[in-house]
Design a protein around this nucleic acid. Structure first.
Lengths: 240, 240
DNA sequence: AAGTGGTCTAGACCACTTC
DNA sequence: AAGTGGTCTAGACCACTTC
């Protein structure tokens, strides 16, 4: 076990059980180094990680303090920013199915070429899927993916989980995602497949998703019925 | 100037002008330490920050690489996650005004007490504001704030910027925010003040915002007309 | 003046990847 | 076997806060 991870875990435990009280300052870095039989640099590494977790904050000259929302944040630390693949997001307690509405391979249009950074001879999958959770329509997805980046997608993959296929079969790692969230009136697909009424609102998520190396592999738009989909976001204040 | 900031800036510059090409690996840490006349630890600190910026990534045993989306990300690095105070978000090129629809001080209800972590004798501001940008209705805000945390709010503050008041007058620093984004049908306020029609969708942002020390100071719901408001989110893949 | 966190050096050992 | 990044030590100097 890495030393800084040990220190992190111990401090996290002490915050949770109230040994380090909210608003109070932790022992200073020299004391901690002594207690954990290490050096200040290693203590600082542990503290830095806890700062990024929004559990504590440091003030030069003054000390390191437990944030008042240390517990609040942890209350929500599942589900937040997890909008990455319906299957992974919802977990095992739900029955997830997909109905393939459209699946073809074609050349990309100008917009798709720009978003996915493609050349004119590259091909894209053009997919429409209805996602069904616990036997109810959950979301409607319009997905474009480059064939050369994610080879081998077929109907059996689409019926299960594309992200599962990328992770486990292709052994590629998912990286960052750039999303635009908006509201709109339902379109014909929403009305037909999501059981929306004519003037019902839908929640739209437009996203470009990247692999770990920064190559974009998904350009998609997802529609959620207004009474079902919610997006949860936690923005850390550490960079402000 | 701090040494690791210098190194960051230089590397950032080299990526931007293509001296370090996308997908290629940077010089190894020992070489960089030599070039910048410093030690590996300081180089690592600079690299760590660039990794958090999603500009590069490291692979133990192999090297440090420029991400393919290094430029893509920087294309959007304004505006992303900036949903913090309309005034700050929109900047100086817009004319921002507010119309106060409701402003009173009262005891909180159970929900507000829980979200804002209040005792029964604490008071909250209960505010309804129409935000007007470039002479057009832009958003409708229902805001609750604890009086003891943010003292001294009055109509002159509400007509300008609450966040500006907190930063500059109270000299407190804004921290994290927890948000839930959803879509709904317009309500009576939306129809009256945002000029929504009866069945028009609105984009809803429910949020709790915290000060740097983790104390919650805002519990609010903001309504955007569906053809105006969009929320932009960038999720870094570094923690996956 | 004393206490605190932030930066930096000059080394060492190790885990993992590449060839 | 050689090259790479990750962790860790034992110190030093400094900026800032607190009293």
């Amino acid at each position: 076990m890495l030393k800084y991870v040990e220190i992190e875990n111990e401090i996290r435990k002490r915050i949770k059980n109230g040994y380090y009280a909210i608003g109070e300052h932790l022992p200073d870095q020299n004391q901690m180094a002594k207690e954990f039989k290490t050096t200040r640099v290693t203590v600082q590494k542990a503290l830095k990680n806890l700062i990024n977790e929004d559990l504590i904050y440091s003030q030069r000259g003054s000390g390191t303090y437990v944030k008042a929302n240390a517990k609040y944040a942890s209350k929500f630390d599942f589900g937040v920013d997890q909008y990455v693949g319906t299957t992974q997001f919802l977990g095992k307690n739900h029955k997830i199915a997909s109905k393939i509405i459209k699946f073809k391979i074609r050349y990309p249009n100008a917009d798709e070429k720009e978003r996915l950074n493609l050349n004119k001879n590259d091909l894209v999958y053009d997919i429409k899927r209805l996602r069904i959770v616990d036997d109810e329509p959950y979301a409607f997805e319009y997905t474009k993916m480059p064939v050369n980046i994610i080879p081998g997608i077929d109907e059996s993959v689409l019926k299960k989980s594309i992200y599962g296929y990328i992770n486990q079969t292709l052994n590629k790692k998912i990286g960052a995602a750039y999303r635009i969230i908006s509201a709109n009136k339902s379109n014909q697909d929403d009305q037909k497949y999501l059981e929306c009424k004519k003037d019902d609102p839908v929640l739209l998520v437009n996203q470009v998703v990247f692999l770990k190396d920064g190559i974009p592999f998904e350009y998609s738009e997802t529609h959620h019925p207004y009474n079902k989909g919610k997006i949860t976001v936690y923005v850390s204040g550490n960079n402000r």
